[in-house]
Amino acid sequence: MASQGTKRSYEQMETDGERQNATEIRASVGKMIDGIGRFYIQMCTELKLSDYEGRLIQNSLTIERMVLSAFDERRNKYLEEHPSAGKDPKKTGGPIYKRVDRKWMRELVLYDKEEIRRIWRQANNGDDATAGLTHMMIWHSNLNDTTYQRTRALVRTGMDPRMCSLMQGSTLPRRSGAAGAAVKGVGTMVMELIRMIKRGINDRNFWRGENGRKTRSAYERMCNILKGKFQTAAQRAMMDQVRESRNPGNAEIEDLIFLARSALILRGSVAHKSCLPACVYGPAVASGYDFEKEGYSLVGIDPFKLLQNSQVYSLIRPNENPAHKSQLVWMACNSAAFEDLRVLSFIRGTKVSPRGKLSTRGVQIASNENMDAMESSTLELRSRYWAIRTRSGGNTNQQRASAGQISVQPAFSVQRNLPFDKPTIMAAFTGNTEGRTSDMRAEIIRMMEGAKPEEMSFQGRGVFELSDERAANPIVPSFDMSNEGSYFFGDNAEEYDN
C-alpha cells in the first residue's frame, strides 16, 4: 500500500510504541512475548500442572481467558453494579484439565481477579502490559475465525453469508486497541457500523446529549479505520460520505453494504499476525530463551520457528480426527482463516481442507461434555516452508469459486491468482447506482469489472525454506488448481455463540 510509510507498523501498534527502528520493534515485541511466557509459567505453578498438562491447549485457553477477564475493567465495573446470582464479580476462573488415573478430569478453578492481575503485572515488570493482553485477544479471535462461520451475524446486519472472507476479527472485544483495529476485516468494521446506525434509528437519543457526542466521535473513528483499509480513492470518498452524514440511517447502511461487497474484489488491507497460545510461549521462556534479547516478529519467520520446536497437546472428542484438529489450530496460529487453501497447503506441506470436510468441533470443551471418553493427542503445528504475512489485500483475480465463501483475504505475501467468483459478486451490483453516491458507485463498479483474471497478485513473492531466515531465496510455489480455494466452501461450520 502506498501510504505504508505514514502508518505505524503493526509491531508498533502491538507494543504501543512511538516510531521505533526494526531492532527496537523486535525487542519490544519480544518483551511482550516474554511477559506472556513468564505469566503462563507462574500460572502453571499456581495450578500445580504437570509439564504435559501445561502444554494442553484447553488449559492455555482457560488461563488466557482468566487474565483477560481480570483486566476487563468495563465488564468488571458492570458486574459490580449489576450483581447477578451466583456470579462473584471479583473472581474469575474456568475449567482446568488434569490427568488422573490414566483419565482426563475437569476441575473448575476460581481465583481472585486481583490475584491474577498481581501475577500478570509481576510477570511483566510491574506494568499492565496491555500489548500482551491484546495479543491474547487476537489469538482467540484468530481461533474463532478458523472455527466458526459468522453466517447468522452477517444475515442479521443485512449482509450476504458468502462475504465471510471479510469477517476477520469479528469476535475481537471493543477494547483491543490499535492492534485489534489493524486485524479487523472490512466486513467486521461494516458490521460494527451498521449495528451502531441501527441503534440510532431505533433509539432517538442515541446521537443526542453528552453521551451522543461520545457516540458520534466513536462512529467517526470507526469510519476512519474502515476508510484506511480501502485502497481505492472511490471507496475512500464513499467512506467520507458515510462519516460526514448528519443523521446516519438506511442510506448509510446501503452504502456500507455496497462497500463491503466491493471489497470482495477491490480488497481492503487487513493486517495478519501470528499470535500463538500462551502454552507455546511459556515452555520456550522456561527453556531459557530470551525473546527480548533475541527479538521477535509476528509477521516473519519467528512464529514458524517457534511452532517448529513446540509440543502442544489437545483434548480430542471420541469421533474427532486429531489431524483435522491440528489443521484448525495451525490455521489459527498463522492467522489464515480466509487465505486461499492452495497457498496454505503449499506452505504447510500437507493438504489443507475446507472447514466442512474437517471432523472436528471447536477447541474448547463445553462444561456439560462427558470427560470419560476424552483422549488427548499432539497437535501437528509444523510447516514445510515459511512466508511473510501481508497486510495488503493483493490485486484481484477471477477463479472458480464456491457456493460458500466467494473470495479470499490473503494472509501471506505469496504470488498467486486470487480466487473470487466474479459473476456471483457482480450480480449483486445491478441497477442500484442512484442517489448521492452514484458517481462513486459507478466508478467502483467500473474498477471491479476491469479486474483481470490473468493478473498475478504479489508478483514474484515466494515462500522460503525454514533454514532461509533472511528470506534470501524465494520459492514461487505451484498450486494444484483442481483443489478448492475457499475454506468455508459450501460450508456447515458451527455458528459462533458468545
Rank of each mutant, 00 (worst) to 15 (best):
F304E: 08
G54V: 05
R118G: 09
R175S: 10
V343Y: 06
E46N: 12
S165I: 07
P248C: 15
T171H: 05
G187N: 00
M163N: 00
E292A: 08
C164H: 01
G460S: 14
R382C: 13
Y313N: 04
A178M: 12
R195S: 08
E465R: 14
G485W: 14
A234W: 08
F464S: 07
Y487M: 06
R74Y: 04
V352Y: 13
T6P: 01
Q311G: 07
D101S: 09
P354W: 02
G86N: 15
M456G: 15
L49C: 09
G94Q: 09
T390Q: 02
D439K: 01
R117E: 06
S274W: 09
N473L: 11
E244I: 11
S310F: 05
H140G: 10
I57G: 13
S297L: 10
L110S: 03
P248G: 04
G132M: 11
A234P: 13
L306Q: 15
S28Q: 15
R99A: 08
Q327A: 02
Q308H: 15
T130P: 08
Y385Q: 05
Y52L: 01
I25F: 00
K90W: 04
R152M: 05
F489I: 02
P173C: 07
A123R: 12
E469H: 08
D491L: 02
I265R: 00
G54M: 09
K198V: 08
S310D: 02
I138Q: 03
R55Y: 11
N211Y: 13
A181Q: 15
E11G: 08
S50G: 15
H135Q: 13
Q308W: 14
N397V: 10
V242H: 05
V408G: 01
R208I: 03
Q122R: 11
K31F: 09
L306K: 05
F429K: 00
Y52V: 10
T157M: 04
G268E: 10
Q398D: 01
R416N: 09
N368L: 09
A472Y: 13
S482W: 00
E449F: 04
F479L: 11
N224F: 10
D128Q: 05
E81W: 01
G356C: 06
E114H: 07
V329I: 15
N492Y: 03
A284G: 00
I406S: 13
A337M: 04
G17T: 08
N21Y: 03
M159W: 04
R216D: 05
I253T: 13
D421H: 15
W139P: 07
D128H: 15
A472G: 06
Y219K: 04
D88S: 13
G490Q: 04
R208L: 06
G460R: 15
V155W: 02
A27Q: 14
V463T: 10
N492D: 10
S407K: 10
Q327M: 09
A427K: 00
M440L: 08
V190K: 00
M371T: 07
N250G: 12
D101G: 08
G462C: 08
I57M: 09
S392W: 09
E494D: 12
E469I: 10
A284Y: 15
R436I: 05
G349N: 06
S262N: 11
T232F: 03
E380P: 02
R162T: 02
G185L: 07
L49F: 15
V186M: 02
R389T: 05
Y111S: 13
D145F: 02
G17A: 12
P248R: 05
R102G: 13
K325W: 12
Q459H: 11
S28R: 13
P283A: 14
N417S: 09
W207M: 03
A178P: 12
I96M: 12
N483P: 02
L358H: 09
A336M: 03
M159C: 09
V155M: 04
V67G: 11
G17D: 00
V100F: 06
G349S: 11
M1E: 10
S9Y: 10
P318H: 14
I63N: 01
N395G: 09
D72I: 06
D491Y: 13
P474A: 14
F464D: 04
R156G: 06
I257C: 14
T396N: 07
A129L: 12
R382D: 03
G187L: 07
A123G: 15
L358P: 05
R152D: 02
R382Y: 09
A411H: 04
V29L: 03
E254F: 14
S407H: 08
A336P: 00
R174D: 08
V363R: 02
M105T: 10
R416L: 04
E449W: 00
K98A: 11
Y78G: 06
N124L: 04
K198G: 05
D127T: 14
E443T: 03
S383R: 01
T215E: 03
A27D: 00
G54A: 14
M331L: 15
A131N: 12
M13P: 00
L68R: 05
V299G: 05
A85V: 11
A336Q: 00
I201P: 02
E294V: 15
E292H: 12
G268T: 14
T23A: 13
G132E: 05
Q398K: 15
A442H: 00
D16H: 07
L276G: 05
G460F: 02
E80Y: 14
T151K: 14
K90Q: 15
D240N: 14
G349L: 10
E449Y: 00
L381M: 14
D160N: 12
I41W: 13
L379I: 14
N492F: 02
V329E: 01
F338Y: 04
G177D: 04
N125E: 05
Y313G: 11
M159V: 11
D101T: 15
N211R: 00
M222T: 14
A471F: 00
M163Y: 04
A411D: 00
Y219V: 03
K113N: 09
G349R: 06
C279T: 09
R389C: 01
K452R: 14
F412P: 02
V408A: 15
I225E: 11
S84F: 00
V190Q: 07
S176Q: 05
F206L: 11
W120K: 10
G209T: 05
P453Q: 14
L61Q: 10
K48Q: 15
S438T: 03
C223K: 09
I116R: 01
R8H: 00
P477E: 00
P419S: 03
S50N: 08
L379G: 03
M191D: 07
N247C: 15
M447V: 13
N125L: 13
Y10N: 09
K229T: 05
F488R: 00
C279Q: 10
S84T: 14
Y385C: 05
S141C: 11
G54W: 05
T151D: 08
G394D: 09
I388C: 04
P410C: 15
R55G: 01
V343C: 12
V100M: 12
I301R: 15
N21I: 05
D16N: 11
V343D: 03
Q241E: 10
R221L: 11
G490C: 04
E73P: 00
K77P: 02
S377P: 05
Q58Y: 13
D72N: 07
N473K: 07
G126A: 14
N76F: 01
E495H: 05
L276K: 14
S438A: 14
R236V: 08
K293M: 07
D497F: 12
E443Q: 14
S467N: 11
V183Q: 05
R348I: 09
N309T: 15
V29E: 04
R361F: 04
I194Q: 12
L259A: 15
P83S: 10
G37Y: 04
A387M: 01
P277T: 12
T232D: 06
G228S: 12
G132D: 10
V312Q: 13
T134W: 04
F39E: 09
R99C: 11
S176W: 04
S335G: 11
R355P: 08
M159H: 05
G126V: 09
V190L: 03
G362S: 04
L154C: 12
T424H: 12
I36G: 08
S457P: 09
L381H: 08
D127P: 03
D240A: 13
V183H: 08
D372M: 10
I444P: 01
L108Q: 14
R8E: 01
W386K: 09
A278Q: 01
G404L: 02
E53K: 00
L143N: 05
L143K: 08
E252C: 10
N59S: 02
K357Y: 12
I63L: 14
T378P: 10
C223F: 09
